[in-house]
Design a binder for these strands. Structure first.
Length: 693
DNA sequence: GTCACAGAAATTTTT
DNA sequence: TTTCTGTGAC
């Protein structure tokens, strides 16, 4: 390249450490980037700089946490390069999540380690389904067989549910620990089942192999295996000159191994992250990856970004105070040029309803003063925390998009539809096969298994099902079903437009849907949306993989054409808000039990992670920050006999932290004082009682 | 073998 | 609110 270094005017937007990071040479580089310090900008400039100095874009690998993040990054790279007439080259960059890139690589090179290229991918719920199949096969869930069923035995803990089993399995695999260690540390109540869990997991692994399916963990494991295979390594290690990893604090041991496999000396490796924002340890992410990076790769250059461009100083003061309570951390002091601004507000509400009322009120006030809804975001710890807000927004016709929580593709009817395509793509995929067959009346687990065995014997040719005589109840549907599958399985159909295939499935499936759900009309509309999405894909396999690896993140993303999209408010779990920013941020339910979550107060590591989570939430705000907390929770659940309970503010809002907040009631009380004081004494009693329950 | 029902138990965050 | 297991009718 004759260009040499990128023009000064492009790099002039960067501050000194950012510029140093963007232009640093090929040695291992660690960029420690605090919240809002221009991490994305820096990384984008680094990629642009690499390309401008002659690195082949096709030999750059950019690993991000979500596909959205990598798309955004590459868009900015293009923006920077446009001035050099090189716009568009970034399309050649290998960008995406670890899992998405693993899929591409394994399809192409997996043969080396004995992997068929047409594997299908299990998402979280599919993996649970398979776990359940194996679990019942081995008779592990049963409780009735126990002789006598004495009280003693009833007290014995039941075998863990499928979700828990998968958590245990995944944790062992991703942390590379023995089952015993994992059980001891994270699942002590399951320790007595160690032997049976071993049986279960080994059968689970076998099943996946027979069916030619990979779960999320497998994608990483096999990529790593490929890098450890001598042949594979040669081909792959030489594939990339530069590897950049974003959000490195949230990678796990296997991902770190992959990085080492790609570049054993660290040549060409850049990682970016912030240990204060590590919030995925539940998924086996290990902060030590980023903390120990300089030891792993001798000669690492460390560059710290500490100037915050996002938030006003009053907000930074508050967030600095919150994170300073952490027991272990890499010291950083964020500062901003943006000195002016309102202090963050801590809002006390009577209950959930009042919180909702306050939020809607405030959101509209900001809207009236000219701030678009997209520039405001409501963040919460758990997906269900926003339910009452969603209802109210709906009632008032305020459009919103919700991120996190149950995704569109995880709903039963969407999974059903996709299962037809997946079975057609990979007839050995027993998860999809069982799902599809059991939709037919009269076919249950046993029949479904038998039918799949026949299919395997006939090498996946769906014609073999024509000769089967189905149970009476399925008599009408069966020929149609077989015709559908034969059509989809035909090699010619494989290449036909994915939208058309989806349409055929929908015609068959819609009547079944009617009988299965009472809100079938609504669900049918979802399926129409799905068909539209499918129509955007040329390749069926790609479509299916995409739906497992990178599903549309909000239901509304699908329902509306992005180009015609109307103004909308953002609701998001804190986890899904990572890396994003808004002018106004509201953090809901900042009470103990919610933040930190009741389930995560076991040890200091967990509590620290919850603190970082709270920190991530607060640091999303640019100008205004509201932290709201209901004081009273009504519980009509089976669990509690009392009708309501009182909540304390989050323990992270310590006295010192609160000095940086304006504290007030959402709606100053106008009720009669007697009731208030009665409430106050009740609150004391309740909270004392709470200490023993 | 399948299905519908009942009673009990669990309940975060996500590639 | 859903998920899981056991039971009994078909």
């Amino acid at each position: 390249m004759v260009d040499g270094i990128l023009a000064d005017d492009v790099l002039a937007d960067l501050n000194d450490p950012q510029r140093e990071a963007a232009t640093y040479g090929t040695g291992p580089l660690l960029i420690v980037a605090g919240a809002g310090t221009g991490k994305t900008t820096t990384l984008a400039h680094r990629v642009a700089h690499l390309i401008a100095t002659g690195v082949d874009p096709g030999r750059i690998l950019l690993l991000t946490f979500t596909r959205r993040a990598s798309a955004e990054m590459l868009r900015r790279v293009d923006g920077i390069l446009r001035e050099r007439d090189r716009a568009g080259v970034s399309r050649k960059v290998w960008g995406g999540t670890f899992h998405a890139v693993a899929t591409r690589i394994l399809r192409r090179h997996g043969k080396k380690i004995g992997l068929a290229p047409d594997f299908t991918i299990l998402d979280r719920t599919d993996s649970e389904d398979l776990m359940q199949v194996v679990r019942t096969d081995l008779g592990l869930g049963e409780t009735k067989g126990k002789a006598g069923r004495s009280r003693r035995e009833q007290d014995e803990t039941r075998f863990p549910l499928k979700g828990t089993c998968l958590n245990i399995y995944s944790r062992a695999v991703n942390t590379q620990q023995s089952l015993k260690q994992v059980l001891q540390k994270d699942f002590p109540w399951c320790e007595e089942h160690e032997d049976k869990l071993k049986q279960l997991f080994s059968a689970y692994v076998d099943r996946k192999e027979e069916a030619s399916i990979l779960d999320y963990d497998d994608l990483l494991l096999f990529w790593r295996a490929l890098l450890q295979d001598e042949d594979g390594r040669q081909q792959l290690a030489e594939k990339f000159d530069c590897v950049l990893v974003d959000e490195y604090q949230d990678t796990n041991t296997v991902q770190a191994d992959i990085l080492r496999g790609l570049s054993p000396t660290g040549r060409g490796v850049t990682v970016v992250g912030d240990d204060a924002q590590s919030i995925y340890s539940f998924r086996a992410a290990d902060v030590r990856n980023i903390l120990d990076f300089p030891d792993q790769f001798p000669g690492t250059k460390v560059i710290k970004l500490e100037q915050n461009y996002r938030s006003s100083q009053p907000i930074l003061d508050a967030t600095n105070a919150i994170i300073s309570g952490a027991t272990k951390r890499h010291h950083k002091q964020l500062w901003s040029d943006h000195k002016q601004g309102d202090p963050p507000q801590m809002i006390l509400c009577n209950d959930d309803d009042e919180q909702t009322e306050f939020l809607v009120d405030r959101i509209l006030t900001h809207r009236e003063s000219g701030l678009k809804l997209q520039q405001q975001a409501v963040l919460f710890r758990a997906s269900h925390h926003s339910i009452s807000l969603e209802v109210e927004l709906g009632r008032r016709n305020i459009p919103f998009h919700k991120y996190g929580g149950l995704k569109f593709v995880e709903t039963a009817h969407v999974k059903d539809m996709l299962a037809y395509l997946r079975l057609a793509e990979n007839p050995r995929d027993i998860v999809s096969g069982m799902r599809v067959l059991m939709l037919l009346p009269g076919i249950g687990q046993v029949k479904a298994r038998g039918l799949l065995d026949i299919l395997t014997e006939n090498r996946g040719d769906f014609s073999c099902w024509r000769d089967v005589s189905p149970p009476k109840a399925a008599m009408d549907d069966w020929p149609l079903f077989v015709a559908l599958m034969r059509g989809l399985g035909d090699p010619k159909a494989k290449k036909s437009v994915v939208g058309d295939q989806m349409h055929r499935v929908r015609r068959f499936y819609a009547p079944l849907l009617k009988g299965k759900y009472d809100n079938s009309r609504e669900r049918e509309r979802d399926l129409e949306q799905l068909e539209l999405v499918a129509a955007r894909f040329k390749d069926r396999m790609e479509f299916i993989a995409e739906m497992s690896l990178d599903p549309p993140s909000s239901t509304q993303d699908l329902a509306t054409d992005p180009s015609l999209d109307e103004e909308h408010l953002i609701l998001s779990t804190i986890h899904s808000a990572k890396g994003l920013e808004w002018n106004v941020v509201y953090v809901l339910h900042a009470t103990d039990g919610n933040i930190p979550s009741q389930q995560a107060v076991g040890d200091t590591d967990q509590i620290d992670e919850e603190r970082r989570l709270f920190y991530v939430a607060l640091t999303r705000a640019k100008e205004s920050l509201y932290v709201t907390m209901p004081q009273r929770y009504y519980s009509q659940s089976w669990n509690r006999s009392d009708r309501h309970s009182y909540a304390q503010p989050s323990r992270f809002l310590t006295k010192e932290a609160r000095e940086h907040f304006d504290e007030r009631m959402a709606f100053p009380s106008i009720g009669n004082e007697e009731e208030d004081s009665a409430d106050a004494t009740r609150q004391v009693r309740e909270s004392i009682k709470g200490m023993w329950s």
